[in-house]
Design a protein around this nucleic acid. Sequence first.
DNA 1: CACACAGCCTGCTGGC
DNA 2: TGCCAGCAGGCTGTGT
Length: 291
Amino acid sequence: MVVPELPEVETVRRGLDVAAVGRTIGSVEVFGPRTVRRHAAGPADFAARLRGRRIEAAVRRGKYLWLRLDDGAALLAHLGMSGQFLAVPAGTPDPPHLRARFRFTDTGPELRFVDQRTFGGLALDEVAANESSTAVPVTVAHIALDPLDPAFDRGAVYERLRRRRTGIKRALLDQSLVSGIGNIYADEALWRAKLHYARGTDTLRRAEVERLFDGVDEVFAAALRAGGTSFDSLYVAVNGESGYFDRSLEVYGREGEPCSRCGAPIRREPFMNRSSYRCPRCQRTPREPRW
DNA sequence: CACACAGCCTGCTGGC
DNA sequence: TGCCAGCAGGCTGTGT
């Protein structure tokens, strides 16, 4: 199972565009309270308020995605570590870890939310009426623009990076600075830009930040191509396993293997109670690292 | 506001 | 063979 970052969530959003948009919800089942823990009014309210709602659009920012409903609210979803949406014919046996089921008023496939590790979740949220930026659910208001957003502004991110006093990878993972990047693509983008993860953000030059976001764009584009080519639009419009980009990574998960640029063995190092992978030759430790 | 970190969770892996 | 620690890492809440 691959952890979903922006490209995977975007692949899911495209699947929902096909599988859910334009349909009207008939009934909703929620299995256990945890999946809707962010919905303060509880599972019964969640289900009741969704009944009869028509889905008008599938929207994403960073790793959040939501279905815009015909009453102005949004069905907000986060996949967490392991969440998947599956569109399957009614009667298909329930899989393990089924957390919610959406039936529609038509005879098409039902939609399921499946999540092994339950870091994911669903909620009903109001969409803030804000004339200065894209309308997003209240819960998503603090999430920064992601690099695929037409309004994403590298120059503005650079200015914020320069004012920070932290390491570049911490900053990349901060969804209030730039959204959509997780541990895997952070390492991949840093490798492409030949930057060490502990490089102080206040020492970065503009050209380095350009290289970094070029790297982000490249890994995102490659992952989206992989996701876009391999999903079955009829059966599993939305499948967390097919189409995930896990075979073309340069450093992530490749400890001991040679760097494809210089041949030095890739190193794995503990970082933020996780792992960072880097090439020790292409990505040298800075003189004044900020871990 | 900026920054750092504990805690939430389940399945798999490897050491003993 | 079985047990259990360690690992995977998204986000929120809380502390400084």
